[in-house]
Design a protein around this nucleic acid. Sequence first.
DNA 1: TGCTTGCAATGGCCTTATGCTATCGTGTAA
DNA 2: TTACACGATAGCATAAGGCCATTGCAAGCA
Lengths: 303, 303
Amino acid sequence: MTLTELKYIVTLAQERHFRRAAERCFVSQPTLSVAIKKLEDELDVTIFERNRSDVRVTMAGERIVSQARKVLEEAELVKQIALEGKGQINLPLRVGAIFTVGPYLFPHLIRNIKPIAPEMPLILEENYTGVLRQKLRNGELDAIIISLPFEEPDVEIQDLYDEPFEVLIPAEHPLAKQEKVTRKQLEKENILMLGEGHCFRDQVLNACPGILKHSDETSLPQGTSLETLRHMVASGLGITILPSSSSDKHIYDSDTLVERPFAGKTPYRRVSLVWRKRFSRPKAIAALVQAITSCALQGAASV
Amino acid sequence: MTLTELKYIVTLAQERHFRRAAERCFVSQPTLSVAIKKLEDELDVTIFERNRSDVRVTMAGERIVSQARKVLEEAELVKQIALEGKGQINLPLRVGAIFTVGPYLFPHLIRNIKPIAPEMPLILEENYTGVLRQKLRNGELDAIIISLPFEEPDVEIQDLYDEPFEVLIPAEHPLAKQEKVTRKQLEKENILMLGEGHCFRDQVLNACPGILKHSDETSLPQGTSLETLRHMVASGLGITILPSSSSDKHIYDSDTLVERPFAGKTPYRRVSLVWRKRFSRPKAIAALVQAITSCALQGAASV
DNA sequence: TGCTTGCAATGGCCTTATGCTATCGTGTAA
DNA sequence: TTACACGATAGCATAAGGCCATTGCAAGCA
């Protein structure tokens, strides 16, 4: 049984005439005759009662033809769905981002992708780089937003923007009175840090190698998110270092917390989009990149 | 797009592994690979994301596969329905009978066919021989029950039973006192007849050629059915001739109406079943014949 | 590092399926 | 009778669909 044969019987049932039905199927009359016979033999049912003057659908044939029509309709839907799928940007896209990017990027992303790909809902997730990598690899995520360095086989990486770090200080702290903060000065302070696993932690330690020892000695609590750190700074536990995007807007005013840039070479992180090389929706990725780079993140420099 | 290809993608989506999926489809792995690729090319959508370690269904693929599953289900139903249709006696059968047979045969027929073909409802119709012939020819009826003679090309005829005629007489009529009635005696009576078109009318005239002239002279009313004739006989308009099956049971008792056989050679009619030579359900016809011949109609002789 | 393994893709070949044209047999109409 | 229309059949060409053997690639193992 083939879809062609089903089309043949549906058409013949309509036309009740082999030659006309054959024409409508764009085949010759013998082709139709043989195909019909073949299907009847296979199903072992007479679908059409032939008569020199007339072709009639049998009682059993009626039911078969009507079911065949259903099959053809469903098959037509396959093509329809495929056509929709071709657009690539009208299906959900599963996007992950590291904890220190997601909360600040996603709101802008959602807003900016609407006009570009209104039919492409984003399924979002925040997680550690390692978890995101795993989920990208096994297909649970289509694209992830991480911070370099990032090594992984069979993926494409598109750099999105560079984001400077800044120091978050309680307003009454002596350092708050300075325009800029030097790395040397930080080494004498209690620097609140994110826990292990957050790549931002490593990046901060990389940018200010001197602070680790000090923080270890005082065994300060480790933040579970940038916002947690912010709260702890506000409560006077110490100071911290944040990526600039995280100071976009928050609940503390400048009487409580102030941000100060680094003196000298500004440390920064590079945020990138990663997807599987064989991922089948380049248009969806392009839309995502466009939406993110047009975010004009506060203090971020597009690359 | 073929049903085979759809089966392939459904299986591959389940197995996520070409070789295993190929095995389950009873084809070689290359066959599967090529077929999948062909379908993807045709639909112009990547359904599967291949990876050395894994085969994954894409977002668009998910929807296509699920629709493909629907198509296969519906296609499976075609086979199912064909299988049911093969039984031949589990679909309605459209049966017509002449006016002078239907009312007396149908009740028995319905009762008797139940055990033989419980799944085959009968769509019944009463009409003139000519109309039945036409409806049989153009497929509106599957079988008709008529009385011979009947000539028609491309049909099969199965004789069912012979049915004697008898005379219906008001109880107070002089003839009612006789055991039998001769044709000679009938010629002097008012014989009530069915109207033109009823073959029974012709058969009666054939059996008793002498009565026509007489009836014409008195211009008696023509009956529209055997029951109408019976009522008119009861009301004293005359006497009539009926096939024996019609006196099976009715509302008049023997104080009002009596039936009398013919003296001499008993006239009778032969009732037969007719269907198109190419009609595709011989089993249904056989069931019908069996049901009718087992009716043991009162006074009827099976042939 | 090299070797082996497992996977999907590819190439070459064969068989079957599916299509065509030409023709037949048979009822129907002129 | 001829002519015609219809569906069935025969014979042939080609495309589709299948197989086996092999390739290319990545991963795991020694």
